[in-house]
Amino acid sequence: MSKHLIAMIFTGIVTLTATATAFATKMSIVGRIQSEYSHIDIEGYSSQSTVNDPTFFSSWGFRVYEDLGHGFQAMAMIDFGFNTNGATQGSRELFVGIHNEKIGTLKLGRTHSPFADFAGGWTIDPFVYTTLQAAGSGGTMIASANGLGAGAYSAVNSVIRFTSREFHGFSFAALLMPGDADKLEAHLGGPLGGNGGNIGETGGEDGEWDIQVAAKYNYDFQEHKFQVFGGYSRDNVSTAQKRVTTANLKTEEVGRIGGVWAYKDFQLQGQYEFVSNAIGAATCSDAAALGSIKEVETRQCNSAMNAGGDGDVWYVGGQYKLGNATLIAQGGMSNADSTDFAKKRNAKSYTVGALYHLSKRTNLFGGYQHVNLIDRNETVDRDRNTWTVGLRHLF
């Protein structure tokens, strides 16, 4: 990229920011960048070391606010992800919405799900967006391909989401994804169906709306802080997905319950999820995959359920703040029931490590994760060991 082009882009950004401010609209450039040295070793198969951002934590974008008066604000977010090896993940959150401090926030567009950023999920995993994260990298959280789980950098297209403010400790969030089509397959390559690679996650002909709801309650007693949360997620199978006859796909349902207890510098957190008729949950992060290895026994997509099958996932962790450092220990287990074409298996994991805050915007992190994957049909028992150390900065 030439120096002249870089200068033009920079000048344009500054001009847009100044213009927005002049019209009482506040626009800020936001972003974050991370890189980590990680080593993954799969017992009896392969090992690999990289310097990268394998969970695509890094991103940049624009956040926009406009004061509408009477406690209302218009808001918008444009966020794009990348990693430090030059690869682009594409869009994260892309939405426009309305916020009221006494009611809550309404978003329209592409957003994260309540299972990711509201009730459990990322909010209780201190290693989220690292190689040691629980979602997709240790068998302890659902990481759905359609964004309805807690997968890193995932979001949900074509949604309406409302998140309430907290009322006497209680708050809730609801996400709706339209999925009804009269005759043609919904969103399959064009406005009238068409041909394309999209498998129609929005429901298809005569489909129903996908939905996710979650609620939490916060309660403080002296120096103790308690939080309990729960939620329900439904991903309706589309007509295109039904054509995957070997999987016998049906509507996926996920239930979640969990809680947090904090006392001074100590915290415990955990959650349990039950998955029925998994559709989008058969994914894992590249951090857990060790390159392009596709075999389940070696790739170790531990938080994945078998497509069309049931399963359950639980996670528990503890944190202790010691000065600028946070010491972390966590782990859990996933159980994937067998289907006609996939094996029954479980994965057990534990993770230990620490975060060290150099400032409010910059921190170091590192640790070790051990995962034991057992195929309960053919007695495959293969461990995975991961070490990582990294640095991240928010701007």
Rank of each mutant, 00 (worst) to 15 (best):
residue 167 F to N: 13
residue 166 E to C: 03
residue 181 A to K: 02
residue 150 A to I: 01
residue 140 T to G: 04
residue 144 S to Y: 04
residue 127 F to L: 12
residue 158 S to G: 05
residue 164 S to F: 05
residue 147 G to I: 05
residue 157 N to M: 00
residue 191 P to W: 12
residue 163 T to L: 00
residue 133 Q to G: 12
residue 194 G to C: 08
residue 190 G to V: 08
residue 168 H to W: 09
residue 181 A to R: 08
residue 129 Y to P: 02
residue 142 I to W: 00
residue 154 S to R: 15
residue 145 A to K: 11
residue 162 F to S: 13
residue 174 A to W: 01
residue 134 A to K: 05
residue 179 G to K: 01
residue 166 E to D: 11
residue 153 Y to S: 15
residue 161 R to Y: 00
residue 164 S to W: 07
residue 158 S to Y: 08
residue 132 L to A: 11
residue 182 D to R: 04
residue 133 Q to N: 08
residue 170 F to D: 10
residue 182 D to G: 07
residue 139 G to N: 02
residue 184 L to C: 01
residue 134 A to R: 09
residue 152 A to K: 07
residue 141 M to C: 00
residue 140 T to I: 00
residue 123 T to Q: 13
residue 171 S to K: 14
residue 139 G to I: 03
residue 194 G to K: 04
residue 182 D to K: 11
residue 122 W to E: 01
residue 137 S to G: 15
residue 157 N to P: 05
residue 155 A to E: 07
residue 132 L to M: 15
residue 172 F to Q: 06
residue 184 L to Q: 06
residue 182 D to S: 08
residue 188 L to W: 02
residue 172 F to Y: 14
residue 141 M to Y: 00
residue 166 E to V: 14
residue 160 I to N: 05
residue 186 A to P: 02
residue 132 L to T: 12
residue 137 S to N: 15
residue 159 V to C: 12
residue 149 G to W: 03
residue 148 L to R: 03
residue 143 A to S: 12
residue 149 G to L: 04
residue 172 F to M: 15
residue 163 T to M: 01
residue 127 F to I: 11
residue 151 G to S: 08
residue 124 I to L: 11
residue 180 D to I: 06
residue 136 G to L: 07
residue 132 L to I: 10
residue 137 S to T: 10
residue 150 A to V: 00
residue 126 P to M: 06
residue 175 L to P: 09
residue 168 H to L: 12
residue 178 P to R: 04
residue 142 I to R: 00
residue 130 T to N: 08
residue 168 H to F: 12
residue 182 D to A: 08
residue 177 M to R: 14
residue 138 G to R: 09
residue 152 A to M: 03
residue 130 T to L: 03
residue 124 I to S: 09
residue 140 T to D: 02
residue 125 D to H: 04
residue 132 L to D: 09
residue 189 G to C: 03
residue 175 L to V: 07
residue 186 A to I: 11
residue 152 A to Q: 11
residue 155 A to G: 11
residue 153 Y to N: 15
residue 167 F to H: 13
residue 132 L to H: 13
residue 193 G to L: 06
residue 133 Q to V: 11
residue 149 G to C: 09
residue 179 G to W: 00
residue 153 Y to G: 05
residue 131 T to D: 06
residue 139 G to V: 00
residue 175 L to A: 05
residue 175 L to M: 13
residue 175 L to S: 06
residue 152 A to C: 08
residue 125 D to K: 07
residue 156 V to I: 13
residue 123 T to L: 05
residue 139 G to M: 03
residue 154 S to D: 14
residue 153 Y to V: 14
residue 169 G to H: 10
residue 191 P to K: 09
residue 184 L to F: 04
residue 133 Q to A: 12
residue 192 L to G: 12
residue 169 G to F: 08
residue 194 G to V: 03
residue 147 G to R: 04
residue 181 A to E: 05
residue 168 H to A: 15
residue 176 L to R: 01
residue 158 S to R: 15
residue 171 S to C: 06
